[in-house]
Design a protein around this nucleic acid. Structure first.
Lengths: 187, 187
DNA sequence: CTTTGTGGCTATGTGGATTAGCCCAGCCGT
DNA sequence: ACGGCTGGGCTAATCCACATAGCCACAAAG
């Protein structure tokens, strides 16, 4: 019996591919095992449990989203940056609905997720920093942005909006609504 | 062996109590059976499957939310009505986080949920009707409202915001952000 | 008092997570 | 080249949950 040459990262990769293909609730150790070509118990040599696999996947996803967001934000600031961040987040959720659904809503509660979650949150904070928001005001604005972005992406990714056609318009309207609520720094 | 006098409604009641007590992922037929005082297979005399129980629960929850919202809206219109709707939705999610989490994001996809989902959606539409929004504009505004309300409630109910103290302030800010984006009808 | 339908039961099968324990492949030092 | 050690793979087995089958008793209708 030749070795499969598996690793924790490879298992996470396979799990992410799996949910991309067949949806989040198709995530099962048996399915991951089949996809990696090993028997189900063998996976325990690489991940501690299904729950841990889920956290590892969430870390990966948040890192991926962080990376895309930072890329989208280079050279932008103000309303332009906010819009880019919102569009990037939305596109990610539409392109990878299962991955978006696999992100926990409370990453900071799990020590294993706190680091990746903080990095993602700091992007939101950074974008708003350009508006002169400090301390508490920055927190409120970040929460608002997070709620909007998460809410829209969740519903859209789940197919929860009736007509798919002019969702772009709705999203642009949402972007405008949020940016309009931010303080204008100068002329 | 005396009969337990169960009914479909009683099973749904027990299931809702169960998730209120122990969270949504504690929902299991065995646990519902224990709570109703019957053996697990007996539940199949009243519900077709665990999936069907979930839909029945979702219908109940949406009806309950619809009722609370209509109550909160009597005698209100305009920004006042929007604020009342948003506060009612938020309070429901905070008071019953598991029930909120049990609501599917795409109720209109399931014929069994479509009716209750439509009734809830129509409340959103009705509140915005006072702004003179018609057709497509009303759809966009409804979607925005839905995304905001769902996003905030989901994150808060899951404990996803760091500090719980001034969430009221954040929510009031969100209400203001949304109402400010609506057209002013007169004066 | 009987009939009948319904709501309850036990027994059983399937699938998934997880644990225990074995065993060989490959590297390392000799 | 060889012998051992580590680690990654395996099978077997347990536990738990959903689900189905089929029996049986209660109680309401007649």
């Amino acid at each position: 019996m030749p070795r499969a040459g598996l690793s924790t990262a490879a298992v996470v990769d396979a799990a992410l591919d799996l949910i991309d293909d067949r949806g989040l609730n198709a995530l099962t150790l048996a399915a991951v095992a089949e996809r990696t070509g090993v028997a189900a118990p063998s996976l325990y040599k690489h991940v501690g449990s299904l729950a841990q696999l889920r956290t590892l996947m969430a870390v990966r996803i948040m890192e991926e989203l962080t990376e895309r967001s930072t890329s989208a934000l280079v050279g932008r600031s103000g309303d332009d940056a906010v819009a880019a961040l919102m569009r990037t987040y939305r596109r990610y959720a539409v392109d990878h609905p299962a991955r978006h659904a696999a992100m926990p809503p409370d990453p900071l509660h799990d020590p294993a997720l706190a680091s990746a979650g903080t990095r993602l949150l700091e992007i939101f904070l950074a974008v708003l920093r350009g508006y002169g928001l400090e301390g508490e005001a920055a927190i409120h604005a970040t929460r608002c942005l997070r709620a909007i972005v998460h809410g829209f992406a969740s519903i859209e990714a789940a197919g929860g909006f009736g007509l798919p056609e002019d969702l772009d318009t709705t999203h642009e309207q949402l972007i405008h609504m949020f940016t309009a609520s931010l303080p204008r720094t100068s002329s």
